[in-house]
């Protein structure tokens, strides 16, 4: 197998919620907890999970907006978390982020041409006289006219703004782009356009994507492999076809059953999860999904309430963290 482009190894990000009088931490939110993941060059890795499961935190850890509590982010043979800020900046240039909200992610007082030119200028990616051409080229690459460069963000629609955000990320000539729910703020018809654009760009610019989404439907279109997250943990990772045809984790099954099916003949029973998402603050030992798991009673003698099951490979490339599928 090829070398992964980037490896997350036992990555954790904990937020302190409360301290006692002596400043000792008494309550911790485990947004990402001991997560390991490889992303290979050229692939699109879909990361799904419901709100609050930590998927955005993973994205922000990758682009250095958060510092990991523990674990490593290995890129180009070095652990980004251990680098000094100056060096880290050089590596982080290769990892860019596309934001969820196209209305908040563009500076309202900057013409879009400047928004795209600034990263090029500041990082000296192009000689000064070529910046203008580059901006025009990038605008065209994301399907906007180069004549729009002097317009302000508020003069664009949501889909067009998202294209500007994509152009800004491309300006950095990245290897990996973290797409943080890039289409969930857009109209359904525009979603498809932006997804197709991302698809085309990955070929044109040789990009690798970490595509974060809250549902499996969007991810199904664009991903090569899919990881399912639940409360800071990866519960299942598999190639797309495998995951959609043979989901193993009870949570993945529930997510898949929630995708609307257009053909009434194909509709199946929806798996409804009982109860609320368990709080990621001071999680109890045991499987994170145990309190909502409908399959728990099938697993006689399992340690569901004692220890989180490890992520194990059950078939080539298909990993699942569930005692029902011990693997090997």
């Amino acid at each position: 197998m090829t070398e992964p482009l980037i490896s997350l190894r036992h990555l954790s990000k904990h937020f302190t919620m409360d301290r006692d009088l002596l400043g000792r931490t008494t309550s911790v939110l485990k947004a990402v907890d001991d997560l390991s993941l490889d992303i290979f060059p050229g692939e699109t890795f879909g990361l799904v999970g419901e709100s609050g499961c930590g998927k955005t935190t993973v994205g922000k850890l990758l682009v250095d907006l958060y510092t990991p509590t523990a674990g490593e982010i290995v890129y180009g043979g070095v652990d980004l978390a251990k680098l000094r800020p100056q060096e880290r900046r050089r590596y982080c240039r290769d990892i860019q982020l596309i934001f969820q909200d196209p209305y908040a992610s563009l500076n309202p007082r900057m013409p879009v041409g400047d928004i795209i030119a600034e990263p090029i200028r500041v990082n000296r990616l192009q000689p000064a006289e070529k910046i203008d051409d580059r901006v025009g080229y990038l605008l065209n690459a994301v399907g906007l006219s180069a004549n729009y460069r002097n317009r302000f963000p508020h003069e664009f629609s949501g889909g067009q703004r998202q294209r500007v955000g994509i152009a800004r990320a491309l300006a950095m000539e990245p290897k990996l782009i973290v797409c943080d729910e890039p289409v969930s703020a857009l109209d359904v018809s525009i979603q498809a356009q932006v997804l197709n654009l991302l698809d085309d760009l990955s070929e044109e610019f040789g990009l690798t994507y970490l595509f974060i989404a809250h549902g499996l439907n969007v991810v199904k279109h664009i991903s090569d492999r899919v990881g399912v997250m639940y409360l800071g943990k990866l519960v299942e990772v598999a190639p797309k076809r495998e995951l959609y045809s043979n989901p193993l984790h009870p949570y993945t099954k529930a997510l898949l059953s929630a995708i609307p099916v257009t053909n009434p003949a194909l509709r199946t029973e929806r798996i409804l999860l009982e109860g609320d998402v368990t709080s990621p603050i001071d999680p109890k030992p045991g499987c994170r999904f145990a309190s909502r798991c409908y399959a728990k009673s099938d697993c006689v003698g399992c340690d569901c309430d004692v220890e989180m099951p490890p992520l194990r490979e059950v078939s080539p490339g298909h990993l699942v963290a569930c005692y029902l599928h011990p693997g090997d």
Binding site: S105, V122, A171
Partner: peptide, 28 residues
């Protein structure tokens, strides 16, 4: 708290540049 400030961090701008080019103009 706006995403465009996070975006400015991601593309590697310095704190001084973020304050003068992105934060203050919006407070202007």
């Amino acid at each position: 708290e706006n995403d465009y400030i996070a975006a400015a961090h991601v593309v590697g701008l310095s704190d001084a540049r973020i304050i003068f080019r992105h934060v203050l103009p919006n407070a202007l």
